[in-house]
Amino acid sequence: MAEMRINGVRIEDTFAEAFPMTYTRLVITADTPAWVDAATSSLTGFATSVIGCGCEAAVERLLTPEETPDSRPGAAVMIFGMSSGDLAKLVVNRVGQCIMTSPGSACYAGLLQGAKRIPLGNGLRYFGDGHQISKKFGDRRFWRLPVMDGEFVCEDSVAVAKGIGGGNFLILAASHRQCLAAAEAAVAAIRPLPGIILPFPGGVVRSGSKVGSKYKALIASTNTRFCPTLRAVEPETLLSPDVEAVLELVLDGTDEAAIRTGMRAGIAAAAAGGPAAGVLAITAGNYGGKLGPHHFHLHEVMA
C-alpha cells in the first residue's frame, strides 16, 4: 500500500488490534457538577486496564440537568469488563463504595435495553437494613436507601451489552513535550464523541505493554520496541533515531464504528500540527492478529 501522510505526519501501514468486551453505562447525578466529578472520579478510579484492575471505566460525557432522570447535573460513565459476570461483581462494589458514599449522589441505569441485566440497587438494598423502599415508575424500578444525608436513590439494575476494548494508536514525536501536546489534542477531539471512553489517566498511556516477559511471573511487560531509551539495545525497535517520546491512546467503545470514529478524530487532531509540531508518525499496537478479532487498519480508518 502507498505511504500515507496527514499534514506531513507518516501514518504507518499497520493496525490496532481490539477484542470483545462487555460494557454497561451508568448515569450518576449529584447536587452540583463538582460533586458529580467527585463521585465519578471515585467510581472510575483504578479502572485503567482490565488486566490489573478488573475493569476499564471513564466518564463518557457530562449531562445537563435536562438529560438526567432527576433533573440534576450528571455524567454518563461507561464500565467495560471481560464478561457480564465480572461486571456484575465490579459494578455493584464500585457503586456501593464510590457512589452511595458520595454526598447527594444518585445512580441510574444508562443502558436500559438489553437481554442481560446486572444488579445495581438490587444488590445494595440490604444496606437499608429493612428500611429500604422500592418504587416502580413505568418500567423502571428504583430503590430508596436511607443514608445520613437523606436517601440514596439507585436504579434496581442496568443492562449490559457487547462492546470493544483495546482500540488504540501511538503518537511518535520528536520531544516529550510535543508528544504530550499532540496526545492532549487527540484526547480533546475524542472525548466529545458518544460511545467511547479513554480509560487511562488523562486519556493517555505512557507505559504500553507487550505480551510476556523475561520473568515467568509476568504476563505483560514494557513494550521495548517503543521505548526510546532502549533503541540502541532493542533489536526489534520500531523507533527511528529522531523519536524521543511515544504516547498511546486506548479507546473502548460500544462498537467498531464508535472506535473507528474515535481513532479517526484522535489521529487527525494529533497530526494537525504536522512535523513542525514535532509529531513524526502515528502507528498502532497489535499482537499479530492473535489477540482479538477487531482490526482497525490505520490507512482504512484515515482514508
Partner: peptide, 13 residues
C-alpha cells in the same frame, strides 16, 4: 421535612 429526590423520578414518569 426535606426535598425528596425520588419525587423528581415520579414527576419525570
Amino acid at each position: 421535612t426535606r426535598d425528596w429526590l425520588f419525587l423528581h423520578l415520579l414527576r419525570r414518569g
